[in-house]
Write a protein that binds this DNA or RNA. Structure first.
Lengths: 202, 202, 202, 202
DNA sequence: CATGAATGAGGCTTCATTCAT
DNA sequence: TATGAATGAAGCCTCATTCAT
């Protein structure tokens, strides 16, 4: 019995993982349930044993990504290090996460996610809430930094959102090959850290 | 004859304008040709007299937006003002453009546009090229700034992309209501300018 | 314009008529929308220009039948003839209607219709209401007959329902070939009239 | 061994009984094999150990009902009582059977059953035969009544069918709540008996 | 030019049936 | 025997596109 449950959970994971890849490649609407099934080596009907429908599958997959990312974010926030270091850690986290989950980043991290509303209006509210949660965590770190005199006084939420957008736009441009200059993880991290902390003015 | 040509051109504009609104509201796939036709007060068939198909209409509409934005960008680049001012002008331009064309921004400016590939893979290459063009213009301004000793030495393309991402992410969060703090155009511009030039560190 | 409206109405009628035949032959669930379309010489999609969905088509078709039958029933009720004659007229009407619309009778007249609930629960309430309406009209005629001393005192509704059931069961058995004895319309009418008025006892 | 056989038979009965309820409630097509299995507390696959398929299960269930009803009918026919009493007994039987097996009556007794062909054409022939059998038994009783001078001369089959239809329509209207007047078994029996024997004329 | 009725390919989803455990 | 996960055929429905008027 236990074993069966495990097996089911495993297959669920397989479907989600496959779906993530396929959705990330073709987008929500150009992905057919059949494509996912075939890619996973399953029959179309099988998908429906694990997910209510296409939407449910898509949202479950986003959900998982959020949960994972959120967990890391909380960990960073609660580390006993100064806020600047936390910002660095967040940048590292985002770069890592992008590298490991490029597929899912395209889907849910996209421009802080909200444009997914263009993809599926039903998700709008849920997704916005998630993003606000993430922004809130970063905003708190910003506030901590301001209180300790390490950061400039500024709207904490704006700053948080801006940091997220800055990071994501660079990483995505990487993925998409807009800016051809070859880069590595380290470079990106230090570039972002510098830019975020000190801007581009000399 | 000439008059007829003008009439045609006018109707074309009406369709594009309407389509922009509808696409921006529902996204590419959840927008039907009929919705656009009805909204424009035309018959479905009429759309096909002016555009080859749905894709063509969508891309034409993006194209126009790009062309307009690009024109402004070039104007800024060629103004006889120092690079810092140009950056400020670009930020102003983006904020203005967002305000005036929120609909189109959602569509093509989205995360520097690339995510539209999730919407319609066929556009990928074209759209990426457009974005690269924009990024290049900004990158040149950055280079100018570096050469004149006004900006820090850094990858010009990365910086350009980052500036675009920073700006867009803040503006979109505004639109989407993620960050509730009430803001006005001026505030946004000065916040962005400060952030971009000097970062958030004290 | 007027002409177009007429054409549309005409086509709607064609679809309903075709659907009636096909539904009557195969039943609701074994009838596919495609079958109806093909039978009517149309494409599947065309059906959906005239009816919201399969259910809507089915119900519209029942509705029309009811309306027609109901109209006749009212006419009979309001004729200036004695109740016994009215009963005879009703029997004639049912026999005629059966003959002309065997298809639709199978669908909605069936056992006073209620078993359609087994076919599509959503229709239950609507259909029962229709049948009650019909039963009520007949019940009123019965009451009139009782008041005039022509009929025995008895529950008017029970009597009405029983008359309907009696008639329908005989007619359907005819259609279905249960009782092979060859019969004609006249025979059926007089048999039913006799049975209903005087039963089978000598 | 014997015990195992008994167990099997018992489970078969459980499935049939459950299926009867579920089919009666939702109709053939809106009932899924899974619904029956779940309701019976079994796995879907188990159903297929006892019945070839859904159709087989459905038909077996009808069969059982027929057999039971048929048995009673024969008993009545062979009782040493006069034909009028037999008719009364048949009416009583139908009322009882309806009360005890409302579910199954809805399914197979419906309008003397034939409309089930609308539900599953494959059953048509088999079901019609069953109904004819029943009609024949009643027709023989009618003939006996005519021969003994107790009943009017009339087509015996027509009369038989009409009696069945009359009875069933009243009972079903009861079940379905068309005619709200509260009634009890006794009332129904005497109403039907009177109607069938002497009609509604004064 | 404009219309909008008609088309039909293709997607989502259900569910009877099978089969490995 | 019993299970229930897996299958895939088949149905409903949408909507981009065409074309006769």
């Amino acid at each position: 019995m236990r074993q069966t449950e495990e097996k089911k959970e495993k297959r669920r994971k397989v479907i989600i993982k496959t779906a993530r890849k396929v959705f990330a490649k073709h987008g929500y609407f150009l992905t057919t349930v059949d494509m996912i099934a075939k890619t996973a080596g399953l029959a179309k009907g099988t998908i429906y044993l694990y997910f209510k429908n296409k939407e449910d599958l898509f949202f479950s997959l986003l959900e998982e990504g959020y949960v994972e990312f959120h967990k890391y974010l909380i960990e960073i926030k609660e580390q006993p290090i100064d806020p600047l270091k936390k910002i660095l850690e967040i940048i590292k986290l985002e770069v890592d996460f992008h590298q490991k989950h490029t597929d899912i980043c395209r889907l849910f991290f996209n421009n802080q996610g909200p444009d997914i509303e263009n993809i599926l209006p039903k998700f709008r509210e849920k997704i916005l809430k998630k993003h606000e949660l993430q922004a809130n965590i970063i905003a708190e770190i910003i506030r901590e930094g301001i209180e300790k005199g390490l950061l400039k006084k500024a709207d904490t939420h704006k700053t948080a959102i801006t940091i997220m957008g800055t990071t994501h736009s660079l990483l995505m441009s990487n993925v998409l090959g807009i800016c051809k200059s070859h880069r590595n993880k380290k470079d990106d991290i230090s570039f972002l850290y510098n830019f975020i902390l000190t801007g581009c003015q000399k």
